[in-house]
Design a protein around this nucleic acid. Structure first.
Lengths: 194, 194
DNA sequence: AACTGACTGTTGATAAACCAACATCGTGTT
DNA sequence: AACACGATGTTGGTTTATCAACAGTCAGTT
C-alpha cells in the first residue's frame, strides 16, 4: 500500500510523535492536546512535525488507520487464501490485539472524541459477514440488526478482555466469539468465564 | 566542562549508541563487540558512528568518564562548599549510584576488560583521603595500604549492594561505609546486614 | 598461497531535522 | 476596545544523519 522508503530519521520521528500522542491521550482529552505539546514530549522540532502531518487530527488518523489496516490484512489473507477456518483467523486477529493492548485501550477509551471504534466496527462488519456465510449459518439471512448486535457485542467483549489484563489466552477468546457469532448466546460455552 | 551545544539529533544518536553498547556488554565481552554490531542494535548508520567516536574504545571511554566526572562533581562540591559533613556527601554519592544501578553493574562486571573500576578507585582515593582528614582520625596518618584496603572494601561493598537489588536505603549504606572508614570494621554496626 | 567473508574506516551526494523568525489567529484580561 | 499571550502554520538557511560505494585489513578455509 503506502510503500514509501522510510529512512531511519523518518521512522524515528513518526514513532516518537505517535508514542507522544498516545501518552498524552492517557492523561487528557484529545481536543485539549496541542501540536506544540506533542512535539515537546517527543523532543521533536515543531516544524518537523508539520513536515509529516498537517495537524493533530492527521496524526491520530494515521495511528488509527495503521491499526485498522493491519486488521484488514488479517481478514483479507483469510478471505483470499486457503479459507482454512474462521476460528483460526479470529484467533490470529485477537493475538494481534493482545500485542497492541496498550494502544488499543487508549484509543478505545478515547472513543468519544475519536472515530476509532467506528472504524473498528466497519472492519468487523466485513469480517463477520464473511464468517457468517462460510459456516452452517449460510442458509440463514444476516440482517443488519443482527450484525450490529454481534459487532457491538464482540467489540465490547474484547474491550473488557483487554482492560482486564488478558487473563484468557487468545484462542479461548477466539473460540468464544466464534461461538457467539455462529451459535448465538445460548449455544455458547461460558464455563471458562466468570 | 565539555559544553558543546548539542542539538537533538546529536543527543539522540549518542544516547542510543551508549545504550546499545551497554546492552551488548550484558551479553558478551567488550573485545568481541564490533562497531557494526553497536550500530545495528542502535539503528544508526555506521558512518554516523564515526562522526562521533573513532571506535568502540572511545565510546566506552566516554561512558565511563561521564560517570566518573559526575562522581568527582559530588566530591568537589563537598570539598569546596560548606563542608557540611562527610556522611551527607557519601549519602548523595550513593543515591547517585542507586539511580545509575543498571549501568554500574554492567560496567563493574566487565571490569576485567574495561578500566572502569580503576577509575572509580582513583576517584574514591581522593574522596576517602578528605573524609579521613575531616574527622577525628585527623591525627592518625593514612598509609597507602590503609587507603587501598578501605577503597577495595568500599567498592566491593557497593558492588554487592547494587547486585543485591539495593535492599538497604542509601543513607544506611552511607552510614555503614562511613563507619567502616572512620572507626574500622570492629567499631561498625553490622546489625542490619545479614 | 589464493579465496572467501566480515568488519573497517572514509568519501560525496542527498535527504531530513534543526532552529530562529515571522505573521496570523484565538482567547481571555485589563 | 485595546492588550497580552500562547498556539499556529510557514519560511530559508544550516547542521546532521543517511546511504551506497569504495578500498583496506584480517581470520579462517579450501
Amino acid at each position: 500500500m503506502t510503500s514509501e522508503k522510510l529512512d531511519r530519521r523518518k521512522k524515528y520521528t513518526r514513532m516518537v510523535l505517535r508514542k507522544s500522542l498516545l501518552q498524552l491521550l492517557k492523561q487528557k482529552s484529545f481536543s485539549s492536546i496541542t501540536v506544540k505539546e506533542i512535539c515537546e514530549r517527543a523532543d521533536i522540532n515543531r516544524s518537523t512535525f508539520y513536515a509529516h502531518y498537517s495537524d493533530q487530527f492527521e496524526l491520530l488518523e494515521t495511528i488509527e488507520n495503521e491499526i485498522v489496516s493491519d486488521m484488514k490484512q488479517y481478514i483479507d489473507t483469510y478471505n483470499l487464501q486457503e479459507k482454512e477456518d474462521a476460528l483460526r483467523m479470529t484467533e490470529k486477529l485477537i493475538s494481534y490485539f493482545a500485542a497492541k493492548q496498550e494502544e488499543l485501550i487508549i484509543l478505545l477509551n478515547a472513543s468519544g472524541e475519536t472515530s476509532f471504534e467506528r472504524k473498528v466496527r466497519e472492519v468487523a462488519q466485513t469480517s463477520i459477514r464473511n464468517e457468517w456465510i462460510d459456516t452452517e449459518n449460510a442458509n440463514q439471512p444476516l440482517s443488519s440488526y443482527m450484525s450490529a448486535f454481534i459487532i457491538s457485542g464482540s467489540v465490547h467483549v474484547l474491550k473488557m478482555w483487554l482492560l482486564g489484563g488478558m487473563e484468557e489466552p487468545p484462542h479461548a477468546m477466539a473460540k468464544l466469539i466464534n461461538n457467539l457469532i455462529n451459535h448465538g448466546i445460548y449455544g455458547s460455552n461460558w464455563d471458562n468465564f466468570a
